[in-house]
């Protein structure tokens, strides 16, 4: 089994790098997208709130596999229109398409996590803000957001780990992450040991993420 690793070390490193970088980047960008949506879901009413609900329902309701297929092959059908609009450089690239699908998916989930944590902040905190004469923006930026973030950290970490595994779907749009590389190596060797090597890679990656998350959580613990 060790030689399955050593013989294909380039492939494994490429897959590991791709899985780690794409999941991390999509979760981070997804968080930035989810923040306003989650806030709107928690606080706003009216058309803005409907839009946020529509976004969450659309991208949470659609399997990531379908989303990836639609973004990559679906937009591929309109290549001449996209060329005319100057957007083809983005949709031509499988990596960008995959990233877009991952971000749309994870931001919908993260928005719900943020909404949930904002909703659990007790009214006494909000009353304290008013008593201290903080403006709404300062109160949000300096008090509500850090508390909500601290509360949201465990489920956000969970979402991150789910995304690590979700990247294995990227192989359908020709982006070869760990699982895609494993399948390629398997088709050459026909040795099921390949999947043990892949599983160990995922395990090590998830353990590293967990270790990091625990340290971040410890720093925010007093607020949560």
């Amino acid at each position: 089994m060790f030689d399955l690793y050593l013989d294909y070390i380039d492939r494994w490193s490429h897959g590991l790098w791709l899985t780690a970088s794409m999941s991390t980047l999509s979760v981070l960008i997804g968080f930035l997208v989810a923040l306003p949506i989650g806030f709107v879901r928690s606080r706003a009413k009216g058309p803005l709130a409907w839009l946020a609900i529509a976004y969450v329902n659309l991208f949470r309701g659609m399997p990531l596999l379908v989303l990836m297929f639609l973004v990559y092959y679906g937009f591929g059908q309109f290549s001449s229109e996209l060329r005319a609009m100057g957007l083809w450089w983005f949709f031509r690239d499988a990596y960008f398409c995959g990233m877009l699908a991952l971000i749309l998916n994870t931001s919908a989930y993260q928005a719900e996590i943020i909404r949930g944590s904002l909703n659990t902040i007790s009214t006494s905190v909000i009353e304290t803000n008013a008593a201290l004469n903080l403006t709404r923006w300062t109160a949000f930026r300096r008090v509500l957001l850090p508390i909500a973030f601290a509360k949201a950290l465990p489920p956000l970490g969970n979402e991150y780990i789910l995304m690590v595994k979700a990247t294995s779907l990227l192989a359908i749009i020709t982006v070869f992450d760990l699982m895609g590389e494993a399948r390629t190596i398997f088709s050459e060797t026909l040795d099921l040991g390949v999947y043990y090597v892949a599983a160990i890679h995922y395990l090590v990656l998830v353990l590293a993420i967990e270790w990091t998350l625990r340290r971040v959580e410890a720093r925010f613990k007093w607020m949560a």
Partner: peptide
């Protein structure tokens, strides 16, 4: 570029990827 199915590779050929 390796595709799961032939039809998908042909779609990408048609779109110019």
């Amino acid at each position: 570029k390796l595709y799961p199915k032939m039809t998908e590779a042909l779609m990408d050929l048609e779109s110019g990827r």
